[in-house]
Amino acid sequence: MKTENQKAWFFVLPVLLLVAFNALIPMMTVVNYSVQETFGDNVFFWQGLDWFEQILRSERFHASLGRQFMFTFLILIIEVPLGIAIALSMPRSGFWVPVCLVLMALPMLIPWNVVGAMWNIFALPDIGLLGYFLNHVLGIHYDMTQDPIAAWVTIITMDVWHWTSLVVLLSYAGLVSIPDAYYQAAKIDGASNWSVFRFIQLPKMKTVLTIAILLRFMDSFNIYTEPFVLTGGGPGNSTTLLSIDLVKIALGQFDLGPAAAMSLIYFAITLLVSWLFYTLMTKDDLN
């Protein structure tokens, strides 16, 4: 006989608690802050959508958002083609495969703040290896603490160094899954190397590339530690990305309301762009 009860729900309870503590409660706290003003002592005043309006109208926010998009755009436009190119030139079999894979994975194993500190020292104009080499050997004036362009070049180079490997490894996984027969068929059809790339390799890599780009977009859009350790957002505000600005408002100025509103807007933008990108990339597969 069948006994009807709701005991199965108990199985879901642990997950529910976990999600509540690590996502729902913090998120709702932020929502709570974003619509109120507080002067401490747990005294809150209802503020409505004022903070959102203030942030969306703020030129400072527009500027950091612009820098953020610029940063993400630049690293994607460099890392994706570079990663594919490296993956294509990696050996498919033999002794060098594990060597290449380990070398590729190394940068990703280094903690973010260490990467920032490493590049900071590396780039110091007079004692850093890179800074010294550029200034005193090649004679190029390079000082990222003074020159915004130098600072940008450095954070972009750092990110490319740190994260191109992710694109490489994912593209490589896509490439090695292509059976030899496809390459043979293409050769027999008389296809050039470019056609093989365009019509065999790229389509086969599409799924993993979508994931790679999505991951790189989200990671770079939310990046904080590395540029903070490297440049601290300077010189001036030239490398103050969205997350650095957010921390300045929240912890520097202790403007919790505007910071909370900004967090939610930030979150919404990340979500929206990721969703748009994913939907566009997988549209073909659904029909």
Binding site: P179, A181, Q184, A185, D189, G190, S192, F199, I200, P203
Partner: peptide, 27 residues
């Protein structure tokens, strides 16, 4: 191989998966 003007049909059905049948035959 590219210059030999030959065709090969495999035991496994090898067609370009993202192209239509027309494009496959035309490739």
């Amino acid at each position: 191989t590219q210059k030999r003007n030959i065709s090969l049909v495999h035991q496994f059905f090898i067609n370009y998966p993202h192209m239509t049948v027309y494009e496959n035959i035309a490739s």
